[in-house]
Amino acid sequence: MVRTVLVLGGTAEARRLAEALAEAGDRLRVVTSLAGRVSRPHLPPGEVRIGGFDGVEGLTAWLREERVDAVVDATHPFAARVTASAAAATSALGLPFLVLRRPGWRQAEEDDWRWVGSVAEAAELLPTVGTRALLTVGRQELEPFTRLSDVWLLARSIEQPNVPIEAVLGRGPFAVESELELLDDHDIDVLVTKDSGGDDAKLVAARRRNIPVVIVRRPPSPAVMIVSTVDQAAIWVIYGHATVS
């Protein structure tokens, strides 16, 4: 019997999970859902669905119509609304639900990190920390920074932002040397980012240049099963949602 698994994607972990599940053969039907915020996303193997579900009710209806057997949320750690909707929909249908979430960053002794609770708080704090900032918070969260008049801003994103901030376009992962070059070329004296985990080349570069980092904390984790590796998530799916450690 073929089981259908929905992977809520958009991250490198989601792509690797789809690849791992594809190797399980014909026993699994894997559907990866992408939000559609990037015009040319890296597509995973298997079926791909692009676009939102219109909230909990829409997702619940889709899961029922497609006879989904399990859901893995492998979205970005800051996609709190998606995670909450998936938790509610799977609970309503009694479906197994797993969150695959990369570990957050760990501060080293030599790091100068300033933790904040939101992007808005980061923008408010920024003028007290530096005057030339590199922003890596995502192109859809740059608006609070546009109100600043005493800080020069450079945003990095996959696609051009829709706000009047100078931007450099690029898709990670990035190497430490290229991050150092970026900081040096633009005389960056403060980095603003989110605790997304994963590739930390920009944090290593900031450490080497003694540049302070303003970091937005992650939203609270849901009260569901959470794993931190693709292998753990693949085992959970392939072997019938067994407890993983």
Rank of each mutant, 00 (worst) to 15 (best):
E121H: 05
I188L: 12
P127N: 02
G10N: 01
V227M: 02
R114N: 10
F97E: 04
V176A: 09
I165E: 14
G94T: 05
G36I: 04
V99L: 08
R207Q: 03
E110W: 07
V116R: 07
L95H: 05
D231S: 01
G25C: 09
V227I: 11
E143K: 01
L95N: 04
R147H: 06
E159W: 10
R101V: 00
H186F: 15
M225K: 15
R217S: 07
H42C: 12
V244A: 12
T128C: 14
R147D: 09
A223W: 10
E13A: 10
G198E: 01
P222A: 08
S245R: 10
R64A: 14
P103K: 01
A24I: 02
R15D: 06
T146A: 14
V204P: 14
S85E: 07
A206C: 13
A167G: 05
A233N: 04
V48H: 01
P161Y: 12
V48Q: 05
T90M: 10
L148A: 04
T136N: 13
S149R: 12
G58R: 07
V129L: 15
K194P: 11
W152M: 13
E181N: 06
D184P: 08
T4F: 05
A108R: 13
E109L: 10
A122D: 02
L28H: 08
F145N: 02
Q107L: 09
L28M: 06
G55L: 04
P103H: 04
R209H: 06
V151C: 09
H186I: 04
F174C: 08
A35K: 03
A123R: 03
R15I: 04
R156G: 04
P220T: 06
A175H: 11
V72N: 01
G9T: 07
G130Y: 08
R218E: 05
L169D: 08
V119G: 14
A87E: 15
L17T: 04
V99I: 10
F97P: 00
E181W: 07
A86S: 15
L169K: 08
A89F: 00
D185S: 15
L148Y: 07
E177M: 15
F97C: 12
E66P: 05
V68S: 01
L142I: 03
V38D: 11
W115A: 00
Q140W: 06
L135N: 00
A79F: 06
E23N: 14
V168Q: 07
G198V: 10
E13P: 02
A92H: 14
V190E: 04
L59N: 05
L169T: 01
Q160F: 09
T229S: 11
E13F: 01
A120F: 02
L148T: 11
L153M: 03
L125T: 05
P144W: 11
L21F: 07
V38G: 06
V151E: 11
